[in-house]
Amino acid sequence: MLGRYLAQKLGTDLEKALLKFICQPLGMQDTTIRLSLDQRNRLVPGYAGKDVNQPELAMKVFEGAGALRSTVTDMLRFLSVYLGIYADHPMNKSFYITQQEHISQGKNFGVGLGWIIDKRNRIIWHNGSTHGYSSFLGCDPYNSIGIVILSNYRPSLMDDTLNRIGYEILTQIRENNYNFG
């Protein structure tokens, strides 16, 4: 609903709004709702089980709930700006606001603007899944580390394997002070 509302307020559709205000300023050329022929040719088939191919989900009404498609390269670019690695990027202030807790869910969790905030370990994350695909993006903005996991497998709805993998990798990076830069 929020995606539809924002697009309506901007006088456009969600895809055009995302491209204009997020993807183009960040240089994310492979993030979109409607795939070009080249992007469609590079799309990895989605699965819901061993040898159970899932057709992609065509979301026409509530596109903000899972119609956006991206690549690891684009998501890492997003994450780099989100973490403030490009100190002079004009979107830094806006991203910082999304990281702030706007709703408390008790002493362990909070909600930012589009993000879950784990107060126990200062990890900010979001995940998603549609037919045959799942994703996780998590970060520790205080230590400027993050991870993107894109999978062409969608486990059962309540399976949190991708989240646990993301958390474990973030924890290992932080605890072992790995430096990939």
Rank of each mutant, 00 (worst) to 15 (best):
S151P: 06
Q29L: 08
L68T: 13
P155F: 06
P90C: 04
V72C: 11
P45R: 06
K20D: 14
K9F: 00
L170N: 06
S156V: 04
I85Q: 12
M59T: 03
M1T: 14
N41F: 01
G66E: 08
D38H: 10
F180G: 07
S135Y: 00
N152M: 03
Y82L: 14
V61G: 07
Q172K: 12
K60Q: 14
Q8C: 01
N152P: 08
D140Y: 14
R40I: 01
N127S: 13
S144V: 07
L37H: 11
G166L: 01
R77S: 12
G84Y: 07
I123W: 06
Y133D: 00
G46S: 08
P141D: 03
E175C: 01
N152Q: 03
I165G: 01
A17T: 07
F136Q: 02
P141I: 05
L76A: 04
Q24Y: 03
T71P: 14
F62Y: 13
L76F: 06
R42C: 07
K50W: 11
Y142C: 00
R42V: 02
C139H: 03
P25F: 05
S94C: 00
E56W: 10
Y153T: 02
N121F: 14
G132R: 02
I103A: 10
S129D: 09
L157K: 10
R34D: 15
F109T: 02
I145Y: 03
E15T: 10
Q172N: 12
G128L: 11
G112A: 08
T171D: 13
E168D: 11
F180E: 10
L43P: 05
I97F: 09
L137T: 15
M1Y: 09
F180P: 07
Y5R: 07
L79S: 05
G66Q: 03
K93A: 14
H102Y: 08
L18R: 02
E168K: 14
W125N: 02
W115Y: 08
Q172C: 05
D13L: 02
S70H: 03
K107T: 11
Q39I: 06
Q99F: 05
S156G: 08
E15C: 11
L10T: 02
Y47A: 03
A65S: 13
F78N: 06
M158D: 12
I85T: 09
I165T: 05
M1R: 11
F62C: 09
I169E: 06
D13G: 12
D159P: 04
Y82T: 00
G46E: 09
Q100I: 10
Y5I: 15
A67E: 08
T171P: 00
V148N: 04
Y86C: 02
N177A: 04
Y167A: 00
L83S: 08
Q105K: 11
Y178H: 10
I22S: 08
Y178T: 04
K50C: 04
E101P: 03
M75Q: 15
A7Q: 11
L76G: 01
A65D: 15
L150S: 07
V148T: 10
